Every structure is written in structure tokens, then in C-alpha cells.
Amino acid sequence: MYLGIDTNTGLVYEGLGAPDMPAIPTPSIAQAKLIEKDSDWDDLPRGLWSSPLAWVFREDSFDPVTRTRRGRLYEPQPGQGQPNEQAVSPHPYEDPLVRQLGREGRAIKRMNTFTACNPLLLLTQQGQGMTLALGSSRAASGWRILQTEALANGCVMVTLKSLSAFGILPAIDYAKIDEPFRPAVREAIERVLNSAFRESGISVVDHCRAALTVLLSRWLVQSGHEDAKTLATDLGELAKKTEGRAMDCVGKAAQIVARLHVRGKPNEQHAKGLRAPLEGDAEFALHAVGLAIRDFGWAV
């Protein structure tokens, strides 16, 4: 199955032998890149003109509740320059009166052409569990490949799960936080959001540990449980200060994040035979930050 994108109008064409039939309604298409290492985020596609050899994702459905997308993945058509000329059937959105017909009832269009992304099928587990970035260097989102299927028409269908931390961390109502504490809280949360699912598990855990330290210390002082000296206290000690209080769950979660932080140190891994924090551990740390925001009553 082939896909073509008209470089002049952006209209989309498809077909089994060539991308010569209008795709109606026009599907949502984004450039895509498989993220195999952290530095891949710095080398995302820059649009069809600048990065014509990038993969593209054609969305078929999106569920905002489960944050999943389902669609077809394509690679640039081998052996074809990008863009190239294709003879296509007139597109009803562009030429409803069929005035642009050429020889044999076809119109000539200059387009970028793609075919089913078979390289994905050659990867371990057909890429399932890997991260796929959708978008461009201007703005992109991260998605986990949950399922890969080869359809009867040759297309490669993938089911994706959002990795955005914006779906995990609740928005903060900064009016509920004392004004002197707002800059530190805002900076800590922004660091967490910027690192989530884009950096290594160790790095995300470190940012979450720092955020929990800021959140816990500011809440303890703002609520009158502790004095200003607490602002310089380490996370482990802060977690102990919640024992017997309503925020005990936050304290327990913070203690686990503190231990995950220690696991990220090579000397601790060697001395105690510990494994380094992985993405699943980083996701737990993110949820711990979200728990703190909600329990403190700072969520919108």
C-alpha cells in the first residue's frame, strides 16, 4: 500500500500499486522517528521539504481517555526521489468539476511518496515497547508502541500509547502556593515535564526526587508544620516528617523515589547488586509527584 502527499496542496493519495487515488477524508499525517537513544530527540525530522526521507504516521483513530492512537506507519518509497511526479485521479477537494484531467483521465502531481514501513517488522518484537516520536523538531510528542500488525493490504498498523507527562501530572493552581515558594515549585515541575520519557530513567528519577524535595519542604513550611530550616532538608528526612500526618502516603512514595535515586549511583549498584532505574521506575516517580500535588491540594 502506497501513500502520497501533494507538495503543492498537502492533499493525500493512496493505492495498492501507486499512490494514485484520493484519500477521503484527508487523514491526519505526522512525521515519525524511532527513538533508540536519548540523542535521537535532538535529530527529529524538520518537515517534508527539509526531511523528506523520514517515516510518516497516518492516524486512523485517537482515544483521548486512554491516550492511545492507532494508525499506519510508512517509510519513503525506495528507489524514488523525493518529491517525484505521479499520475493521479482528480481530487474532488481540489478539482470537483474534473477540469484538470490529462491523458487517460489523470492529473500529474508532484508529491512525496511512501510505502508500508516494513523495517519496523524486522526489529525485535516488531518494535513493540519502543518509543516513537511524532511531529517535527518544532514540536513533537513521545508514544510507546503497544502493538504492531501487518494488514492484508500490506500496511503496517501500530497502536500507540502517549508518554506525555502532562497526562500524569495534574496542572498546578499556583495561587494556592505561597508567593515566595512559587518560582522554585514552577522550576522543579518544568524540569520534570521536560525530562519525562525523553531522558534516561535515572535522569527522570533524579528530577522527580528534586521536585518532591521542593514540594514536600514548601508544603511543610506553608502548612505550619515546620519552620524555614526545613527548606534545606533532604528528601529522606522530609518524608519522615510526614509520618502520622495526613500526607503519610506522599511520604512513603517519596521514600521509594529517594531509594530509586540511590540506585542510580554506579557505586551503589556495584556494592549492593542493584539494577539501575528503568523507564517503569521513572513512571512510578512521575506518579509520586502527581500524588503530592493532588494530596497537597495544589491541583487545579
Score class of each variant (00 low, 15 high):
Met1Lys: 13
Tyr2Ile: 00
Tyr2Asp: 00
Gly4Val: 01
Ile5Ala: 14
Asp6Glu: 15
Val12Met: 15
Gly15Gln: 04
Leu16Arg: 15
Leu16Ile: 08
Gly17Leu: 09
Ala18Asp: 12
Met21Arg: 15
Met21Trp: 09
Met21Asn: 12
Pro22Ser: 06
Ala23Val: 06
Gln31Asp: 10
Ala32Ile: 01
Leu34Phe: 05
Ile35Ala: 05
Glu36Cys: 01
Asp42Pro: 00
Asp43Asn: 14
Arg46Ala: 10
Trp49Tyr: 11
Trp49Ser: 11
Phe57His: 02
Arg58Thr: 04
Glu59Trp: 06
Asp60Tyr: 08
Phe62Trp: 14
Asp63Ala: 13
Arg67Asp: 10
Gly71Pro: 13
Gly71His: 13
Gln77Cys: 09
Pro78Lys: 01
Gly79Leu: 15
Pro83Val: 11
Gln86Pro: 06
Ala87Tyr: 13
Ala87Val: 03
Val88Asp: 02
Pro90Cys: 10
Asp95Thr: 11
Glu104Phe: 13
Ile108Tyr: 04
Met111Thr: 11
Thr115Pro: 03
Cys117Trp: 05
Leu121Pro: 03
Leu122Tyr: 12
Thr124Pro: 02
Thr124Ser: 10
Gln126Leu: 06
Gln128Leu: 00
Gln128Tyr: 01
Met130Ser: 13
Met130Ile: 02
Met130Phe: 12
Thr131Gln: 10
Thr131Ser: 07
Ala139Tyr: 04
Trp143Pro: 03
Arg144Cys: 12
Gln147Ala: 06
Thr148Val: 09
Leu151Cys: 05
Val156Ile: 14
Thr159Gln: 01
Leu160Pro: 06
Ser162Asn: 04
Ser164Phe: 07
Gly167Trp: 06
Leu169Gly: 08
Pro170Lys: 13
Ile172Arg: 05
Asp173Ser: 12
Tyr174Thr: 13
Lys176Gly: 04
Glu179Gly: 03
Pro180His: 02
Pro180Ala: 06
Phe181Arg: 09
Phe181Ile: 07
Phe181His: 14
Arg186Pro: 09
Ile189Met: 02
Asn194Leu: 02
Arg198His: 10
Ile202Ser: 15
His207Arg: 06
Ala211Asn: 03
Thr213Met: 01
Leu216Asp: 11
Arg218Gly: 15
Val221Lys: 02
His225Ser: 07
Asp227Arg: 01
Ala228Pro: 05
Ala232Gly: 04
Thr233Ser: 01
Thr233Met: 07
Lys240Val: 15
Lys240Trp: 00
Lys241Leu: 05
Glu243Ile: 10
Glu243Phe: 10
Gly244Asn: 08
Cys249Trp: 11
Cys249Val: 14
Lys252Leu: 11
Ala253Phe: 04
Ala254Tyr: 05
Ala258Thr: 11
Arg259Asn: 03
Arg259Cys: 00
Arg263Phe: 08
Gly264Val: 01
Lys265Gln: 14
Asn267Phe: 05
Asn267Trp: 08
Lys272Pro: 06
Leu274Ser: 10
Leu278Ser: 14
Glu279Asp: 12
Ala282Cys: 00
Phe284Ala: 15
Ala285Gly: 15
His287Leu: 15
Val289Pro: 00
Ile293Cys: 02
Arg294Cys: 07
Asp295Met: 14
Gly297Lys: 11
Trp298Asp: 09
Val300Tyr: 14
